[in-house]
Design a protein around this nucleic acid. Structure first.
Length: 659
RNA sequence: GGGCCUGUAGCUCAGCAUGGAUAGAGCACCGGCCUCCGGAGCCGGAGAUCCCGGGUUCAAAUCCCGGCAGGCCCGCCA
């Protein structure tokens, strides 16, 4: 058990007080059900809908009654009669409710005593669990292609990933945050091609934003060229439908071109001219791709690395604004150049699943999955498409390189989390099957992609190729302006620089909360209203409750913290609700880390803030009489602040002492 | 055509793992609350065929089967 005794006097400390209560209940029920064939873990507990049914409840008797044909109510009464609560610590009473619930009533004073002294003793360790084995974990997230600024959709990835990392740290793991730089492949080659055409142009703006413009413009120009030639060949074949289809797509791209051109006519025209004077831009791009991947031309290597590095500078600027940091930046090209990809390829070739088709190397994923008996463990229908590992020109594809990267991850870490868009589910599954085929140990347990839904603009999905992207920078700027007006309105006398600092924290909190608080598998339709929400169920709402609690504590004599206190005095329903909710915090950490579900933490924090606000509104703290009550309430406020503070840190939202 | 994800109040979303007591929040709407620790707040009201249809069960938003709608994927793109 994680209890220990410390200090003078005897102060008992528990990292998981609620679990102590639950385990006590579990043990009693288990003992009383000795005649049945069940394990303690078969007994599930839930929170009753109302406190009149106690604090913990189990329907186990109803479940057993079904199997045995007994009457659930009778069984529950029988169990109750066998339970002896005389020498129990945290159970005040056991009762039976129709149609067969066993309800447990918490012995609040002794529980609250333990809870509050634990939180005080643990300090920042409160909410941090101890794991028997300190797993080494890699969390790879963000990994935005270095060809355009970070969009609000990518930001969902960053926030989710950073938060998951913090959560797993709280779980007691050794967590490493990695950014995978996708510098190999066609997209970066396109950008490098354009950047080179312009003769390494100078620019004033943020580098990722400038490069994003170049990338969008070139892909647009190329797309129009391609569509035009398709249209030509279509005309000769006289297929009316096809012609109309291509023609309308062409119209769409021409409109996009006009839009892009209006943003920077000189630059756009220069690009257009240069591309038009190039006989074979597509060929040149493929050439850049090949020369870079094979590292055959140091000039090309220099240019590609230069654009990518520039873009990353922009990323770092944005990411530091939102407190997202990485332990490592892993270049995809390094994995190729180091020979890791070749080694993986030759290992794959030596399996029976590879074949050559028109010069390209193909891996039969479906067959591998069947042979390895993986069908049942993978939640995708097994008409798994084959995976192309190499192009006819010998260059590799994204997933191939990702397999090598994943191989490395699982070699160096016990557990690998990859935060990645839902649209990449299939390639990730192909990757896992491929790794399994290579004999990597327990791939499905150790390689965990965390898929999330796309962030769409109302009407259409964002597209960096179309230059249609709402950037995180823009959203943050807008949120900060909004927050600053609020701060000024509420605290007119505040120091302007302090106001800026607070507004920025609020802006970041609002945007993060909006993206993190919905379950990841859902798509999100971007809306300013949602992201700039400062009211209930928002980042600022949490920060506000936190600021209120610290305001109280800052006005109190610090000695209260050392004072002994009488837990029986905290007997208002509002106080009890708040304390019980606080005590469940470590369980939330446990559950949400098991399920890689940070939105659970967000929801918990929101409820916690709501309970605190109700308490705050109705019950005075600083003016509470007698002194014992004031001390007890101050300790409660401290416990709240400590808990919300910890949850905010996991969510990546800055706790504010004032706002 | 096949696969995956989603469908809960006018709107945005929890709840689905492990079936269980009156299906919870927020926004918007209606009505109250600043002589008292910060009103970004609190209290109350109204608002739900839990997409539809079957099935399993004493009990289904939750599990199973079949539909429907939306999104995504099925590339020598990433």
């Amino acid at each position: 058990m994680d209890d220990r005794r410390r200090g003078y006097g005897i102060i008992e400390v528990s990292r998981r007080p609620w679990k102590l209560f639950e385990d006590e209940c579990r043990y009693l029920v288990y003992q009383s059900l000795s005649g049945f064939d069940i394990k303690p873990t078969d007994i599930v507990f839930e929170s009753p809908p109302s406190h009149i049914y106690g604090e913990l409840s189990t329907p186990i008797c109803m479940m057993l009654a079904r199997k045995t044909g007994l009457n659930p109510q009778d069984l529950a009464l029988e169990v109750k009669s066998r339970i002896d609560t005389a020498d129990r610590r945290f159970i005040a009473k056991v009762d039976v409710a129709s149609p067969g619930y066993l309800n447990f009533y918490l012995d609040k004073p002794s529980f609250f005593k333990l809870l509050i002294s634990s939180i005080q003793a643990l300090g920042v360790e409160w909410g941090r669990l101890e794991s028997d084995r300190r797993l080494r974990v890699i969390v790879e997230h963000t990994s935005v292609n270095p060809i355009h600024p970070i969009g609000i959709g990518h930001a969902r990835n960053s926030f989710l990933g950073d938060s998951i990392a913090a959560l797993l740290e709280a779980r007691g793991y050794d967590v490493h945050r990695h950014f995978y730089i996708d510098d190999v492949g066609r997209q970066v080659s396109i950008l490098a091609y354009g950047y080179n055409l312009l003769g390494k142009p100078r620019f004033e703006e943020k580098p990722d934003s400038f490069l994003g413009y170049i990338y969008a413009s070139i892909s647009c120009i190329l797309e129009i060229r391609r569509l035009k030639s398709e249209l030509e060949s279509c005309r000769s074949k006289q297929s009316e439908d096809e012609y109309m289809k291509i023609s309308s797509r062409l119209d769409e791209w021409v409109a996009i071109a006009a839009e892009l051109r209006s943003r920077n006519e000189k630059l756009f025209d220069r690009l257009l001219e240069s591309i038009e004077s190039d006989k074979d831009p597509e060929g040149r791009i493929a050439e850049i791709n090949r020369l870079y991947e094979k590292r055959l031309d140091e000039d090309i290597v220099g240019i590609v690395r230069e654009v990518v590095t520039l873009c990353l500078e922009g990323f770092k600027e944005t990411l530091s604004r939102v407190d997202v940091d990485f332990d490592s930046w892993d270049w995809e090209s390094d994995i190729v150049w180091s020979g890791e990809v070749d080694r993986i390829l030759s290992m794959l070739k030596s399996t029976s699943y590879c074949r050559l088709e028109e010069g390209a190397l193909i891996f039969d994923v479906a067959e591998a999955a069947r042979d390895l008996g993986l069908e049942e463990r993978i939640d995708i229908g097994l008409e798994l498409p084959s995976l192309t590992l190499t192009r006819a020109d010998g260059t590799t594809l994204y997933t191939t390189r990702d397999i090598a990267y994943a191989f490395r991850k699982l070699k160096q870490y016990d557990l690998s989390i990859t935060v990645i868009g839902m649209d990449q589910k299939l390639p990730q599954i192909q990757l896992m099957i491929t790794l399994s085929a290579l004999g990597v140990d327990r791939v499905l347990d150790r390689y965990k992609p965390l898929f999330y839904g796309l962030v769409k603009l109302p009407g259409y999905r964002m597209s960096s190729r179309r230059g249609r992207i709402v950037t995180l920078d823009d959203v943050l700027d807008e949120a900060r302006v909004r927050a600053l007006t609020e701060v000024r309105k509420r605290s007119p006398n505040i120091d302007p620089r302090e106001a800026e600092r607070i507004a920025e924290a609020i802006a970041v909190g609002a945007v993060k909360y909006a993206l993190i608080s919905v379950s990841p598998e859902r798509d999100i339709v971007f809306s300013w209203d949602k992201v700039l929400n400062f009211e209930m169920n928002s980042g600022p709402f949490l920060q506000y409750a936190y600021a209120r609690s610290s305001s109280i504590l800052s006005k109190a004599d610090v000695d209260y913290i050392y004072a002994d206190f009488d837990p029986t005095i905290l007997n208002d329903r509002l106080e009890e609700d708040l304390l019980i909710h606080i005590s469940k915090y470590p369980e939330i950490i446990w559950y949400s880390s098991e399920n890689l579900a940070v939105h659970i933490v967000a929801e918990y924090a929101n409820e916690l803030a709501m309970k605190f606000n109700s308490f705050y509104d109705k019950l005075p703290v600083l003016k509470a009489e007698p002194l014992e009550l004031k001390i007890a309430r101050l300790k409660l406020v401290y416990a709240f602040k400590s808990t919300l503070g910890s949850a905010l840190r996991i969510l990546g939202i800055r706790p504010l002492e004032r706002m």
